[in-house]
């Protein structure tokens, strides 16, 4: 059981981190949440409860942690973050290129409406199904689809203007 769990960690941690990173725009907090998520999931398992769909479960727990983080401190605009010296630091090997790219991505994402942004990130970064997203956010599947669609439109528009 422990072995399986750690295997799940190796399998899902990257994607989960990515997901948290974009929703929180903060590397440190993303790390905190990833850790919290796996710890809480282990607690659940240690009580003898079984998890049918590990990936979905992890994302659900992570999403709850993210909401907690939102409540603690509202995510601030990128400019503010840059003033405070926020630089998206990533794996050393791919540092320079991916840093710049990650910054571009965040810049675009920050300009989306929050509701659209979350659904968008969950769909395109988290690769969750509309059904899963709807469950996690507690919204109707239709609403989620609309939000994703609008987000894509906004993103396309923003990318056009970037030149």
């Amino acid at each position: 059981m422990e072995k399986e769990f750690l295997e799940a960690y190796e399998k899902y941690a990257d994607a989960l981190f990515r997901y948290c990173y974009f929703r929180l725009s903060d590397e440190e907090k993303a790390k905190d949440v990833v850790q919290d998520t796996f710890v809480k999931t282990w607690d659940y398992i240690a009580q003898g409860k079984s998890i049918a769909e590990m990936r979905a479960f992890l994302y659900r727990v992570a999403s709850n942690c993210i909401v907690d983080q939102y409540r603690k401190r509202k995510t601030t605009s990128l400019n503010y973050l840059q003033e405070k010296g926020f630089e998206p630091r990533l794996d050393i090997r791919e540092k320079l290129e991916t840093e710049i790219e990650a910054k571009e991505v965040i810049e675009v994402l920050q300009q989306l409406d929050e509701k659209y942004r979350d659904a968008f990130i969950m769909r395109y970064v988290g690769e969750l199904s509309v059904k899963e997203i709807a469950e996690i956010l507690g919204e109707a599947e239709n609403t989620v689809s609309v939000h994703i669609h609008r987000a894509v439109k906004q993103v396309r528009l923003l990318l056009k203007h970037e030149g």
Binding site: Y9, F17, W42, V105, Y124
Partner: peptide, 28 residues
């Protein structure tokens, strides 16, 4: 571009280690 963002090797390994310890201290 978005999907290229990755959990750093260091941090991932560190969390793995922490997780293992946590699991041992709180066994099923």
């Amino acid at each position: 571009k978005a999907r290229q963002v990755r959990f750093s090797q260091e941090d991932k390994a560190r969390t793995h280690e922490l997780l293992s310890r946590y699991m041992r201290m709180n066994p099923a």
